[in-house]
Simulated scan of single mutants.
Amino acid sequence: MSKPLISVVITIYNEEDNIKPLLEATYGALEKLDYEVILIEDGSTDRTVEEVRKYANDRTKLIIFNKNYGQTTALAAGIDMASGVYIATMDGDLQNDPTDIPTMLQKAMDEDWDVVAGRRANRKDGFVLRKIPSKIANWVIRNTTKVYLNDYGCTLRVYKAEIAQNMGLYGELHRFIPVLAKQQGAKMTEVDVKHHPRIHGESKYGLSRTFKVMADLILMLFFQKYFQRPIHLFGGIGLISFFIGGLISFYMLILKIMGEDIWGRPLMILGFIMILGGIQLITTGIIAEIIVRTYFESQDKKTYTIKSVFEGTGRTLKGLEVQATESINRI
């Protein structure tokens, strides 16, 4: 069977009232494309599954989880199941508009983008509880990761399949998908997309997610800079700590030689702590290096990604040989 041009991955959780209009809008938007729709039902407790089975067409796959795993895991499952040349992702709450997908796909194809990300130009969410935290999070992520997108929270994106299926989605990293794609050398652009207010159901997001996002950001920064060489992080900090602790201890030794009582001084305790902490950090870096090497070598993974390979033709090589022989004969 030939691959469809695009696979549309939609995560759904307790969206029974949205399923019919969602599928109708999606099928209508994609009717001129060779497509498949993959719905990931993330452990809903309402009639979401029954509604999907009622209205799905023959190009639709439904993946049903046995419990709620979260949006990142749902996206990962849908992307793994996708067979399209391109993969689009979107939420199932009707706030993303599937009519944007053909335009984004065309841009990716015409201009050879690896990722075309949506930017909610006129966002229909609450200002205090949704827009302000989102703007702060976007600014922090953008300026710390140096991946300059304006809207990390918009799920509507179109990817080349090889990029999407090699990102390694775990935990709650869906907000950082552009960062994961950038680590593979993906070329990304951003376009304005439509955004609608939620009509049915309740939002699954709140202020509590802000702390999770900040924690995941630390992980992303580690992946960006030190994933392949963790000793550069742990070893560097450990050496600084060990050096400062050594200087403090040497200073305390001089005071002891001069006859001062140094026992129990906070500075002496600090010196011991920094020496021990430095040793522990350096040891952690060495262990992390061993784990990273095991990760790559046990799965035959490479530490690099090849974009393309060019091989010259035999005719060209032969032509060069003839030219070289004629030049030698003339000499």
Rank of each mutant, 00 (worst) to 15 (best):
P4I: 08
V8R: 01
V9R: 00
T11N: 06
E16R: 13
N18S: 12
I19L: 07
P21V: 02
L22Q: 03
T26E: 03
A29N: 09
L30N: 03
L30H: 02
E31C: 10
K32V: 02
D34F: 10
L39K: 05
L39H: 04
T48Y: 06
T48L: 05
V49G: 00
E50Q: 15
E51V: 04
V52K: 04
R53T: 00
K54D: 05
K54Q: 13
N57I: 06
D58I: 00
D58S: 12
D58W: 03
K61Q: 15
I63T: 07
I64K: 13
I64L: 10
N68L: 03
A74D: 08
A76T: 06
G78N: 02
A82N: 06
T89G: 02
M90F: 03
D91Q: 13
N96W: 01
T99S: 14
D100A: 11
T103I: 08
A108S: 05
D110S: 13
D112V: 04
D114T: 09
G118L: 03
G118S: 04
A121K: 15
R123P: 03
D125Y: 08
V128K: 15
P133V: 10
K135Y: 09
I136K: 07
A137C: 12
N138R: 08
N138I: 10
V140Y: 06
V140A: 06
N143E: 04
L156N: 07
V158W: 04
E162S: 09
E172W: 00
L173P: 00
F176P: 01
I177R: 08
K182H: 13
K182G: 07
T189G: 05
T189Y: 03
P197F: 04
R198Q: 14
R198D: 03
H200K: 11
K204L: 14
S208T: 13
A215K: 15
L221E: 11
F222L: 06
Q224F: 04
Q224E: 12
Y226C: 03
R229D: 11
L233C: 07
G235W: 02
G236N: 08
I237G: 00
F242G: 01
F242A: 13
G246A: 05
G246W: 04
L247F: 14
S249W: 10
I254Y: 14
L255I: 04
I257Y: 10
E260V: 10
D261M: 07
I262S: 04
W263K: 14
L267N: 03
L267H: 02
L270I: 14
F272W: 15
I279M: 15
I279K: 04
I286Q: 07
I287R: 12
I290Y: 05
V292E: 11
R293D: 12
R293E: 13
T294R: 14
T294Y: 12
F296T: 06
E297V: 01
S298Y: 09
S298F: 11
K301S: 06
K302H: 14
K302E: 15
Y304L: 01
T305F: 07
L317S: 12
G319K: 10
G319N: 14
E321D: 12
E326D: 09
S327Q: 08
